[in-house]
Amino acid sequence: MQDLILDCVKAFLVGGAFCVIAQLLIDLTAITPARILVLYVCSGVFLSAVGLFEPLRRFAGCGASVPLVGFGGLIARGVREAIQKDGVMGILSGPLTASAAGIAAALTFGFLAAVFFKGKPKKL
């Protein structure tokens, strides 16, 4: 139980920190939110490539894997594993393998939302 609470605190702090960095970039620079997301995914791949992401994920758990850097980390891990297994073809089969569940889930739930919900006007 104590472990779980400690894990949650670490996730909260690291996850929150990733959000604060993005917020600072949005508010203080001209970088648009869409570009932030791209930047985060690519940095996740980079962090994983240089071997920083895995230690961070072991430390912060969902604090590292839930933010979009985690998506990048997943892509990088998929690539590594696919190359180890299939060789050169892993370069292409890897990127979307590990992240497939997330993408499929988002598309499925997005589609279902479009089936069941009607757009509502924005409120002030």
Partner: peptide
């Protein structure tokens, strides 16, 4: 960025244009 950066932002980015 609190909802944008976590995977929730990705989900919203897919669902909102779909609706």
């Amino acid at each position: 960025a609190g909802t944008l950066v976590p995977i929730t932002g990705f989900s919203n980015a897919v669902t909102s244009p779909a609706i």
